[in-house]
Design a protein around this nucleic acid. Structure first.
Lengths: 139, 139
DNA sequence: TTAAGTGCAAATTATTTGCAGTAAG
DNA sequence: CTTACTGCAAATAATTTGCACTTAA
């Protein structure tokens, strides 16, 4: 965990007005410490924290991811019924889901074009358009 | 439950080679008895069965929906992390999800056009493209 | 000092499973 | 008859919560 990663994490928290507690800074540094986007599950982030010798409880990872999402720092992506992915890229963009590995990655937004959206009843508005492209290894 | 609905349900099961047991015929009649597409959760189908005086256990509803899906009679749609929807329309088509009500409906397929899909690594192929348009009631 | 954040363990929710019975082919 | 199906109750998996303690502001 470089000091630069910690700095980035702290800034990221500050932008959303979240208190930079020890646990949050550690998780934030893992998430945005290198400036790249990341897709994690509570379990995967918990594992990463442990590997880096950070002491955080699993429940706190869950609560923290929820806090990050509520603060607008992350986006929750639902892809299979039993696991939530959290994405540091909050821009509304499509995803690749690698079914064999259960891994989620960004799909280049400029390569998926939704040409037309259906008419929507006038008392409703589109909150988001979730696009998940499921990939399967060719046998 | 009209005899026509039961007939349709039975035919539907037969098409997939599933045994027309009492419970399955009842559930199938509720699902496709009127020839329209339906989006259900295990709970909602269980409730519908009870309302019609059908005796089925919740576990059997779960198992039956899974059997229908495995037999290709239904499609599972994941829309929020904690509930699975099953759709009698197995054609790969987009959905509306009414966030306020937790209700899932079909979006007219001809009105959603994905113009371009991203390039995919050559050892992978696209299994499906899930499109969920989240609708929110205008305040 | 004080409200927000944390860590457990226990609770919840959706779903699956084991297994003894029941019924379809 | 024999194998698939059913119904419970118990098991599981992911996530949330209650509550006493800790810590950032």
């Amino acid at each position: 965990m470089t000091s630069e990663a910690v700095q980035r994490g702290t800034d990221w928290l500050g932008r959303a007005g979240l208190r930079p507690t020890r646990q949050r800074v550690a998780l934030a540094a893992l998430l945005v410490g290198d400036g790249k986007n990341r897709h994690v599950t509570a379990e995967s982030l918990f594992a990463a924290a442990k590997k880096h010798g950070e002491s955080v409880s699993l429940a706190t990872v869950y609560n923290t991811l929820r806090a990050f999402r509520d603060a607008g720092l992350m986006q929750e992506v639902i892809v299979d019924g039993n696991r939530s992915y959290f994405d540091t890229n909050t821009y509304d963009h499509p995803h690749f889901y690698w079914e064999d590995e259960g891994r989620l990655t960004d799909a280049p937004a400029d390569q998926v074009v939704i040409a037309r959206l259906p008419d929507v009843p006038e008392d409703a508005e589109i909150a988001a358009v979730d696009v998940v492209i499921r990939l399967r290894k060719r046998r």
